[in-house]
Simulated assay, not measured.
Amino acid sequence: MSSTNPTRLTETMGSCEANCPQAILDLLTPTENEHALDWRRRCVESLERRSRKVADGDRIRLEEPVTFADGYVGQEFIVEKRGRRLVLRTPESHGRYWISRLMERQWQIVPTTKVHKTIFA
């Protein structure tokens, strides 16, 4: 309910936004309403995307290429962690970029072979 619009909104009205916190989803009662079930599914998918873990040095591939202000168009990047911030480095030119709401976007980790340091005694 809103202070400017006293109409009660429910999930059965076909909500567009799907960013409900898990704590609220846990409070909802079972339903068979098609709109409500779709909205709950989209909320869970959104929560799963945002909770993905990415490590320093991981290579990620975006579902669609992104065009940046300097004209660079990229789809694959190497992750650099700087504290809590993620910076993306291009594999070719070592340019560094930042993509807003990266964790909400569709991307996947590209499997790479990592060479570990060998220590001889």
Rank of each mutant, 00 (worst) to 15 (best):
T67M: 12
R40M: 11
H116R: 10
C43T: 06
P21T: 04
N5I: 08
R8W: 12
E48P: 00
L47G: 05
E63M: 10
Q106F: 08
D70V: 00
R96E: 15
T67N: 08
S2Q: 14
C16K: 12
E76Q: 14
E80F: 13
G74M: 01
I24H: 05
D26M: 02
F77E: 00
R105A: 12
K53S: 11
I99R: 07
W39Q: 01
D58K: 02
A23F: 13
K117I: 07
E80S: 11
L47K: 01
D58L: 06
V54D: 00
R101V: 01
N19C: 11
L88R: 05
L47F: 03
H35R: 13
F120T: 13
V115K: 10
F120A: 09
I109T: 14
S2G: 13
N5V: 07
L62E: 04
E76D: 13
S51W: 00
E92C: 00
M13Q: 15
M1I: 15
L25A: 02
Q108K: 13
K53P: 01
P91M: 01
R50M: 08
V115Q: 10
R59I: 10
T12A: 03
A36N: 06
E11Y: 04
L28D: 02
M103A: 03
V66A: 01
R49C: 06
A121Y: 07
G74R: 05
Q108H: 14
W107R: 00
T90F: 06
Q106C: 09
N33H: 11
R61Y: 06
H35M: 11
R49T: 02
S46Q: 05
F77C: 06
V66P: 01
V44Y: 02
P6E: 10
T118R: 07
M103E: 03
K114T: 09
R59D: 00
E34D: 13
R59P: 02
T118V: 15
M13H: 15
N5A: 10
E11W: 04
T29K: 13
H35S: 13
F68C: 08
E32I: 13
Y72D: 06
E92T: 03
P91F: 07
D38I: 02
Y72Q: 03
T118D: 04
F77W: 06
H94V: 08
S2I: 14
H35A: 15
Y72H: 10
G83D: 08
E32F: 09
Q108P: 00
I119M: 02
